[in-house]
Structures are given as C-alpha cells and as structure tokens.
Write a protein that binds this DNA or RNA. Structure first.
Lengths: 110, 110
DNA sequence: ATCGTATATCGTCGATCTACGATAGAAATC
DNA sequence: GATTTCTATCGTAGATCGACGATATACGAT
C-alpha cells in the first residue's frame, strides 16, 4: 500500500480518490445534505437526524473535514458545520474531467 | 451497520455512496482512466500499467464491476473491460444533483 | 468555582479492505 | 489430450473502517 499509493498515481488521482472515499458512506452523504438543507449550520442536530450515536457522527464529520469537504466554525459551546464550497467546486471540476475522459472507443463496444 | 444502512438512508444515497466508495481508491480511478484511454479494451494490460499484482488488479476490477461502473466481455481466453457508459451517466446525474443541493445558507457562512 | 450542555477523543470490537502468492478455470494452440 | 496463456478465486495477513460507550474538553450560565 505504501509503495503503490504514493508513487504510482498522480496527485490528482489520489486527491480524487480521497474525496470519493469520503463520500463513500451513506451517512456522510446524508450529513452533507443535511448541512445544506437546514437553514442553520448544523452541529448536534445531525445526531438527531441520523440513527447514529454522537461519537459516530462526530467521527464522520471529522472524515469530511479531513478531506476539506466541510468546515467547522466553533460558535460558543457548539460547532457550526458547513459544506466547503470551494473544495466542492474543485471536486466537481476534477469529477467532470474524469467523466469526460471515460468514453470507450474499443472494438467490442458497439 | 446493518440497521443504519438499510433503514435510514434513501436508496439513492446508498447507491451514490456505493459508487463513490468504488471510486475511493487511486488504483480504481487509474483503472477506469486506463480503460478509456487505450484503444482496445483492457484486460491484463492493466497489470502492466499498474504496480499491482494480477490478483489485486482482478480484485479491483471486480469491485468496479460489482457496482456496475465497468463491464467485462470475455473474448476468448482474455476479458475485455470497458467503462459502462449508462452507469457512468447515471452516476454523473446523481452527482450533479448532490452538488447542486450543497449550497450553504447559514448565518455563519459569508 | 461549579454545573450543564455540546463536541471531540479514546479504546475497543467485529467487519471490511488491500495486497499478495498460490491455485483453479477457461480457451486457443500445438 | 497436453501445453500455454489469461483471468478469477482462495486463503491469508495486516491495515483501516464503522460503530459504540465512556470519558475528556470547551464554554456559557448560574
């Protein structure tokens, strides 16, 4: 693993994989959506929204924050999370690039 | 896990997470790109392209096939893999939907 | 200072992932 | 039929994930 990841793939590929991995759990997608839907930036309201323990939600939030997809501003005793628009835009771009390159021109595909 | 995944999230969320999870490894992104770049649908050429053992590549191919992102036609002794355009299009749509919904309107975001 | 609320972190456990070598299966060729 | 080539699968080992309860930390309020 150590050998492969770092040496063989471009940093863009690694970055995209990291983002995709962060989105690779239903709870984290739901968290992103909840963050965006609510008027207020969420904090522990997510815990009420999802059937997960507070520790688990905090873990998922950390995973999203680690790859930059969300931000957390602390607001007194509570923390206000938001989608990070610029990171999401970059992700969007890289994703578009991936998609546009994924046509297949081989013989066996009609 | 059993309780959460099946009951609490929409099937679209679960599907999107599964796709994202499949893209959540640099090798699998590289495989998708290689499949698309090469004129011929790839098979074991991917093994030469990547610094991974044949068994590992086969495993990654299976992961991508399991979520429908690629297809494999057997062509004599070899197998010809291609990106699955219709699945990728669906993924693209769902992703667009996710992105467009992810603006933040909370007070703390300027 | 103390209490109460809100989050984060720790420790743990079972499940899954990732990688590999070894082996089995399928199909063309000899 | 035997051989070769290509791919899939098995078995395994270590790493990471996902979930949780318990605990620590931060901070406003009393």
């Amino acid at each position: 693993m150590a050998t492969t990841t770092a040496e063989a793939f471009t940093s863009e590929t690694i970055q995209l994989a990291a983002w995709a991995k962060a989105l690779g759990h239903p709870a984290r997608i739901a968290i992103l959506q909840t963050l965006a839907e609510r008027q207020t930036c969420l904090c522990g309201e997510i815990v009420e929204e999802l059937p997960l323990a507070q520790a688990t939600v905090s873990q998922h939030l950390k995973a999203l924050k680690d790859v930059g997809l969300i931000e957390g501003h602390s607001d007194g005793p509570r923390v206000c999370y938001c989608p990070n628009r610029s990171a999401l835009n970059r992700l969007h771009e890289v994703f578009e690039g991936l998609f546009s390159g994924l046509n297949c021109s081989c013989a066996c595909c009609s």
